[in-house]
Simulated assay, not measured.
Amino acid sequence: MLTSVLLKTLRDQSRALLGWAAALIVIVAMYVAIWPSIRDQPSMNAFLDQMPDALRNLFAMSGADMSTPVGYIKIELLSFMGPIAVLLYAIGTGVGAIAGEEERHTLEFLLAAPVGRPRIVLEKAAAMAVGTAFLVVVMGAALLWEGTWTGMDLPADRVFAAMAHLGLLGLVFGSFGLALSAATGRPGLSRGLPVAVAVLAYAVSGLGGVVDWLKPLQKYSPFYQYSGHDPLVNGLDWPSVGIAAATAAVLVAAAVVGFRRRDTAV
């Protein structure tokens, strides 16, 4: 198993992944169960309309309408809770890839195996990508299946377009955590800095439409690549997909370089 870092990592993560998947299924079920009590309440849309533009942009995707299944899911799941869950998993996995192995004193066994450092990083990144993809597919499938319980009809192709963008968002910040983890071996820094940058990027994306001096920065935010083109309504936005994928690839390459250069005293 040590000759395949990817398989070993996936095996080690299997129970945690199943736990994450179960949690996401429950979260989606909770939002689906609440939907019937929301859809016939015009006061909810009135509340949204009365919110200041800055708050509405921060906590709801553009054009969200609580009276429709698409609008409800955009506000309740895809604007906040969904990204938080995916980012927590991806960042935690990216940090655990190298710094976590050091903290558990298992890195020396990994380095003693007949695999080079670049391959370790690349296969750890691949395991993170597989795990993230698994979770967003589970979330998308749960939306489509559980939504039928309450008449929440969602377009399958648009749901999985939104899940693809969400998965790429997770990979960007997970790769950032991996790069810091590989370069420093410090789990606290490697976990805290991506979270701080994610919060900042979220604010820039949300407020860029209403704050003039943030507008030039908005399109550089990974959250803008995730939601700025409204994938649940418009489907995949290929330029945004390309930017997010390229960003993650650059960060993984930085992780390879950082790990090769670092003295791990092994």
Rank of each mutant, 00 (worst) to 15 (best):
R56M: 03
G206A: 09
P42V: 08
T264C: 11
A179N: 09
T247K: 10
P114K: 02
L7D: 15
A64F: 02
L24N: 04
M1K: 12
A133K: 00
A97Q: 03
L58V: 11
A164Q: 10
A64V: 10
D65C: 06
A113R: 14
V172K: 02
L18C: 13
T184I: 05
Y89M: 04
A248I: 02
V86N: 12
L6P: 00
A126V: 04
A255E: 03
E103T: 13
P69V: 09
M163I: 06
P216F: 06
L17R: 02
I91T: 02
A141P: 09
R262M: 10
A162F: 04
M81F: 13
V70G: 12
I34T: 13
M139L: 15
P118G: 10
I98P: 07
N45S: 12
Y224A: 05
G140H: 08
Q50N: 15
M152A: 10
A142L: 02
E76M: 14
A183L: 00
A127R: 00
P216C: 04
A244L: 11
Y72V: 01
A97K: 10
D157V: 07
T132I: 00
D40S: 12
A198Q: 06
T148I: 07
A133M: 04
R117V: 00
L171A: 06
A179D: 04
A133F: 04
A254E: 09
K74T: 08
G100K: 01
T150S: 03
L48F: 10
F176G: 10
I243G: 07
L189F: 05
G71F: 13
R158E: 00
A182G: 01
D53L: 01
A64H: 10
R261L: 11
A265F: 11
E108A: 14
M30L: 15
W213E: 10
R119A: 14
V252N: 05
V211S: 03
P114G: 09
R104G: 05
A248P: 04
L200G: 14
V26E: 02
L122A: 12
A22F: 09
G19V: 11
A64T: 14
V233E: 15
S227P: 07
L111W: 12
A99S: 15
A183T: 12
S14I: 06
L18T: 06
E103P: 03
L17T: 09
S67P: 09
V197M: 00
P114Y: 00
A156I: 04
P118S: 01
L144G: 12
L7E: 14
R260F: 01
R15G: 06
R117C: 08
K219E: 14
A60C: 06
P69L: 11
A60Y: 08
G208F: 09
S14E: 10
E108W: 01
E103H: 12
V241S: 07
A203D: 03
P187K: 00
H105A: 13
A125L: 03
A201R: 09
T132N: 10
V204P: 08
D230A: 14
D12T: 08
R261P: 07
A255P: 02
L135H: 07
L2W: 13
